[in-house]
Design a protein around this nucleic acid. Structure first.
Lengths: 193, 193
DNA sequence: CATGCGGGTTACCGCGCGGTAACAACCGCG
DNA sequence: CGCGGTTGTTACCGCGCGGTAACCCGCATG
């Protein structure tokens, strides 16, 4: 069945996300994606310059979404601890609703392709920045704060992976509460230089 | 120059590690590795069944090393908090001495190749298990403990990545102290159900 | 009915890479 | 010296995949 360009493009992105997330970048051929979308290869090339281009576009969209979700959840002027927990919750919630996207960003073949890696890092950095802004400890190097923030972002990532990998269905709120506690009390314990 | 089989094999592993760590699995050809080792392709195939086989072997060796380093550092019967810090220190220290290996395990092309990913996960799981054993909080599900442990392992990983990515040369001990504090006080703050 | 255009398909190219077969040089040994 | 085994090399194959050229079809319009 034929579709107008805009819709087709969107559908291709959806299909590509699914296949890429499942099989990774390199193990996925353009044919695979086309087939998954019920069309043939050249159609893909009508909408995207190249395979890498398609992948990049996905990464960009997805990364912006996640970044946005976290940023939006943390501007709300509540207690610092609340901000932290809300941030985690937004993160986990988003992941819960976009597992494929999460896989694509942080598990699938995004690794080691220079520009891809850069895209994923940009997201992590952006989120870490938000976290870092909420770390208020006297006598701490900027660099040290950055390390802590990245550590916490990594904590969120790893927690997610374990969460998704295991069948035990824990609500993302409980998870956020736990991770939030861990991070919060951890940060409170840090002594400034 | 000609080498006895055992030595050549070892040298090939070293060369392969370097190239794989730099360019990732898929972007590295067998020719690249051979060239980096100063030989030609068929020599590689005299020592390793296939490209994947070579990669697997590297992952296995490296993973075991890291796992070992952490495990050895934590059997020492000191305070729980000391164990935690020593664990981190062993981790960071090992990474410091084997940056390529770390890259290969957790950053490079270990991507989405099912068995490769599994190898990396085995290492994380093993380390997380060690961590989990040291978490003694009443009223916590086994699953919850696992999540915390994986979170902490992820924290270590992410901290490392940020550490290596940035020029600022911080000593791995300082890093371990900081991460240890974060994790320790974080865990102390967790309330059992 | 002609016509033009947007959406799709078939069929193909070229290249790079994993992998191999066949051959060549070097060693120790009787 | 001749001889076997070990270490390397040159030259090749086949295939899969990214990417493309050329063609097709149906619809809206005058």
């Amino acid at each position: 069945m034929r579709l107008p360009a805009a819709e087709r493009r969107q559908q291709l992105l959806v299909a590509a996300l699914e296949v890429f997330a499942e099989r990774g970048f390199h193990s996925t051929s353009m044919n695979d994606i086309a087939e998954a979308a019920g069309v043939t290869k050249p159609v893909l090339y009508q909408h995207f310059e190249s395979k890498r281009d398609l992948y990049r576009e996905l990464l960009g969209e997805i990364g912006a979404e996640l970044q946005n979700a976290v940023a939006k959840a943390t501007v709300d002027p509540t207690s610092p601890r609340g901000q932290l927990e809300q941030g985690f919750d937004a993160y986990f919630c988003w992941v819960n609703d976009h597992r494929n996207a999460f896989d694509l960003l942080f598990s699938a073949g995004t690794q080691r392709e220079a520009d891809f890696v850069a895209a994923a890092h940009r997201v992590e950095d952006a989120i870490a920045e938000v976290v870092a802004d909420n770390i208020v400890i006297e006598g701490l190097t900027r660099e040290r704060r950055g390390l802590l923030a990245h550590g916490i972002v990594g904590l969120a990532e790893a927690t997610c992976r374990r969460w998704l990998a295991n069948p035990g269905d824990i609500d993302h709120r409980e998870l956020a509460a736990q991770a939030g506690e861990l991070a919060w009390f951890g940060l409170r314990g840090i002594r400034g230089a």
